[in-house]
């Protein structure tokens, strides 16, 4: 373990921010205050943070429909994100994207993507740009178990191998593609094995263990930065909510989520490890909790008070109207 105390606190703060952002959204969505479709990342925080802690603003990521965690881990402004999800004029994308289309180019966040399998080919393109630049920058492509069944993703992985691109394909297997179990839909039940079949190094880690994700992602990014071509990382995890907010989750046993919250909670795992090892104290972690709760409260309050976009915005940011 090579992390300094400040880095450990950063990792915890990011994971906690994601968790509380999502937990609060779960509550606010139920009131009807938030329009549209929302997919929560609760439970998967260690993956986004364990990967993105290795990245600078000018490294790139592409994300998914379940993208809030990736955005926060990559440094997107939390208040701007919340406003975007509320559809406000000063949201990160001026209220024109919404939960599934948050992007922040200043942070190297090339977009959440509502099309399963839409992101990985875009990641190969960003990797071409960095490779041509010769600047040693890397791109991480986040996807779920479901995306590992998409043809576009196969194309992207093959092209990345052919062109030796610095792309890390991260697969977060949360047990379900929409409402269907991974072991049904992923024929081989071995996503990393598939990736290896394309000719890249592929590893598997416990996605609830921040340190396992962080260490393996670091090793793989080192390979990318040495110009040795792409790699893949399969992370086993669960999601604490449904496919989307409002999903009645009849396909999950009654105690499934409760059990996972006891046994696969990355935040609980993190706290136990750092306090057992004596790296951080409970008091230090509690202070972060307080700070995060205040940030989320502020984000929701500001979002509720913020004005919606002016209707004239319908016709902006596109080349022509008739």
């Amino acid at each position: 373990m090579t992390l300094q105390k400040t880095e450990l606190l950063t990792a915890y703060r990011l994971m906690k921010t994601i968790r509380e952002f999502e937990e609060r959204l779960h509550v606010e969505i139920a009131t009807g205050a938030i329009p549209g479709f929302t997919h929560l990342y609760s439970g998967q925080e260690a993956i986004a943070v364990g990967v993105c802690m290795h990245l600078a603003d000018d490294d790139y990521i592409v994300s998914t429909h379940r993208g809030h965690g990736h955005c926060i881990a990559k440094g997107c402004d939390v208040i701007g994100m919340m406003k975007e999800i509320y559809g406000r004029a000063d949201g990160l994308c001026k209220g024109k994207g919404g939960s599934m289309h948050i992007a922040d180019f200043d942070k190297g966040m090339l977009g959440a993507n509502a099309i399963v399998g839409g992101g990985p080919p875009i990641a190969t393109g960003a990797a071409i740009a960095t490779k041509l630049d010769g600047n040693g920058k890397v791109t991480a492509s986040f996807g779920g178990d479901g995306s590992s069944n998409q043809g576009t993703v196969f194309e992207a992985m093959n092209l990345a191998v052919v062109l030796k691109l610095p792309t890390l394909f991260v697969y977060e297997d949360n047990g379900y593609g929409e409402h269907t179990g991974t072991s049904y839909a992923v024929g081989s039940d071995d996503i990393a094995g598939r990736c290896a079949g394309f000719g890249m190094r592929a590893e598997k880690v416990d996605g609830a263990d921040f340190f396992a994700v962080y260490d393996m992602a670091g090793d793989l990014f080192d390979q990318l930065r040495r110009g040795e071509g792409p790699a893949a990382l399969e992370c086993a995890i669960t999601r604490f909510y449904g496919h989307y907010e409002g999903d009645p989750q009849k396909y999950r046993a009654k105690d499934e989520v409760a059990t996972f919250r006891e046994t696969m909670d990355c935040l609980r795992n993190f706290r136990k490890r750092v306090t057992d090892e004596g790296w951080l104290t409970d008091a230090e972690l509690d202070a972060v909790d307080t700070e995060v709760m205040a940030l989320i409260d502020d984000a929701v309050e500001q979002s509720k008070a913020a004005p919606p976009p002016d209707v004239s915005e319908v016709l902006t940011d596109v080349y022509v109207t008739y």
Binding site: V62, I122, T124, G125, A126
Partner: peptide
Amino acid sequence: GTANGAALTG
């Protein structure tokens, strides 16, 4: 897709 990512990044 690669053209998209490359275009987004300069």
